[in-house]
Write a protein that binds this DNA or RNA. Structure first.
Lengths: 355, 355
DNA sequence: ACGATCAATGCAATCGGTTGCGTCAAAGGG
DNA sequence: CCCTTTGACGCAACCGATTGCATTGATCGT
């Protein structure tokens, strides 16, 4: 029988490779990174031995010496959320292509947990950290994490009125105001007038979005104050109550905080025999995959989630390598018109979408 | 002005803490882990200084010495998938509670990428690795990764006929056969007879599930060979074609490989004016969140995804700490009956669900 | 033929904690 | 009063790879 079985196999060290190749550790080290000072023959020989022995370098040792871990940190609220899954997926993919591992931690929308999560990332010496939709104040984040190694993916906290101001370095966000404008203009062009906003979840950017809706409506000559409904607590529990409240005096269209809420609401409204889009039009935000196959399919302002994740990783890695601060980015959302809204009889006919 | 601003702040070292507390490095180290050899007074003093200086230990250095990284690796096919998101979320949560960071890598259903992903995890010296739905042969996986530090979450590759055989150590799976039995029995009890199976994606466990369906059907006296449809390639693209093929000779009920496929199929069937459940009953697997609010809401065999993730983490950590092999686990799915299926006129009336 | 130059490689320090073992002083025992 | 025990802490080696500098032998120029 083979005596090696079961026992905890000793890791193959660089020194083992060096020994077997009959060179010193330093030569082996240099050979593996193709240092031209080492003769080609030796380089090949060392690599062959390394492959044969299945040598896996110990990153902890390397990190200690070179002060880089080849690890990126990603902090987000929840891995179960389709949007964040999309972001995380793209981020990880991009990082992996460039040789980086990604440590992902969830903050679960709680400051205390988010701090613990951040601490974990810092202890592990991540070379850079991307934080998505943090509940911590940007100020606190920046004093905990080196801003030169930090990317913040934030929901828009700025009002539409100030949307022309430049973003802070390292901030990546989607042009929310632009998305809202596209949505509202589309609705108005389609003949919708009595439009309401439905806030979801706990995120404060709700109000910013609501504000943008109000502003755009008024710019279209609809001066009535914007009605706003509020989904208390979790969007997956409250929808029935929310739907009842909305049904009591049904608007012509509902702009929902996000697709998740919109879909939940559609389900709840169905329970009340309210038809979409016949009785009420519904529009969401995010463009999650299921919005494309819901019944009816959901009109939505799709966020460039994958691009956000990709951009965050690329920008972070570039910053790490150059030493510069990561750049700021404003990405554009896209209005996707589907079946949960339609052209009303009252509509002028031609639909013009103004971004 | 503060001269520190902007510059890359030097990390606070243990030695800095020791100096300020007027003790040696070793004493500081021991004080921080509450070594009883150090006097209480000193311990408190050191901790105070550490907190004041905002000391963050360098895990790379510690790992090098103690040979543990406090990092777990998680390899899964795709972070965008709701099921895997659920698993990853629970896994990370549990790991974080116990002080572990989680490095997540995606294999994207390609052997080459999966190997690269595994390599990343190994280089980073993860203390343990959980692999979800690998496309690599278990044998290959086990020879790359120390089985004592490995948990495999696998779709069921065993036939129903052999479902009484014990699981290999470190294997976590849901009792697929049991879920299939529950689903098929429910359908038959509800009066469904002409039942077909729809394979999805690329995963080979398809055939196992199909086999289980066939077996159960025949055990209920339905001897006709099981019709099977195959969604070529990506489930998000083919549904229209698939639906057309199915519509050509519509069965009474469709058992879909998973919820994603079921929902996509419902959407496609709607395009063909085929109503669910009136014209055809549909049932899926997984129990993803959107199955609960789709229109109609989807009957499904819900997998204990969160429990799988939690169990994987717990089992892995226990194995790491005790040195024993991680235990095997067979988790039970649950049939959730919703609106995409119904009792047919032909049904005996009373519905009995036999697990 | 001999020092200079260069190519190829080895030596040893280093990164920042951890830990076995030794030291030192105070307390306790005979 | 001297020796042993115990408590509290420091010294220095160690983990495994990287890297500045030294070393060696060969080649080159004159």
């Amino acid at each position: 029988m083979n005596g090696d079985e079961g026992g905890p196999r000793r890791r193959v060290l660089l020194q083992d490779v060096a020994d077997k190749a009959r060179v010193s550790g330093s030569t082996a080290s240099r050979a593996l990174v193709d240092d031209k000072r080492i003769s080609l023959a030796t380089r090949l020989a060392v690599k062959a031995v390394a492959a044969e022995l299945n040598y896996v370098p110990n990153l902890a040792a390397r990190s200690l010496r070179v002060r880089r871990t080849l690890t990126l940190g990603l902090l987000l609220p929840d891995l179960r959320d389709p949007v964040h899954g999309q972001v995380a997926s793209a981020f990880e993919h991009e990082a992996r292509q460039r040789g980086y591992g990604v440590m992902i931690v969830a903050g679960e929308d709680e400051p205390a947990r988010e701090r613990l999560a951040l601490k974990i990332l810092m202890e592990h010496g991540t070379d850079g950290i991307a934080i998505v939709a943090s509940v911590l104040a940007p100020k606190e984040v920046r004093e905990r994490v080196d801003p030169n190694r930090l990317v913040l993916v934030t929901p828009d906290h700025r009002s539409v009125l100030r949307s022309d101001r430049p973003l802070a370095p390292g901030v990546i966000q989607t042009d929310d105001a632009s998305g809202v404008r596209a949505a509202v203009n589309y609705l108005v062009d389609s003949g919708y007038r009595r439009i309401a906003f439905v806030e979801g979840g706990t995120r404060s950017s709700n109000t910013v979005r609501a504000e943008a809706v109000a502003t755009t409506l008024s710019s279209r000559g609809i001066r009535a104050p914007l009605r706003t409904f509020r989904a208390l607590g979790d969007a997956w529990r409250a929808p029935a109550d929310l739907a009842a409240e909305i049904a009591a005096d049904l608007p012509e269209a509902l702009i929902c905080y996000d697709d998740k809420l919109a879909l939940a609401l559609m389900d709840a409204l169905r329970g009340l025999s309210i038809r979409v889009p016949d009785d009420v039009g519904i529009i969401g935000f995010d463009g999650i995959p299921f919005a494309a196959i819901s019944n009816p399919r959901l009109t939505t302002v799709a966020a460039p989630s994958a691009e956000i994740g990709r951009t965050a990783a690329v920008s972070l890695i570039k910053a790490i390598q150059t030493g510069a601060r990561p750049e700021a980015m404003l990405l554009q959302p896209e209005l996707i018109i589907r079946e949960s809204t339609r052209a009303l009889a009252r509509s002028a006919g031609k639909i013009v979408i103004k971004p």
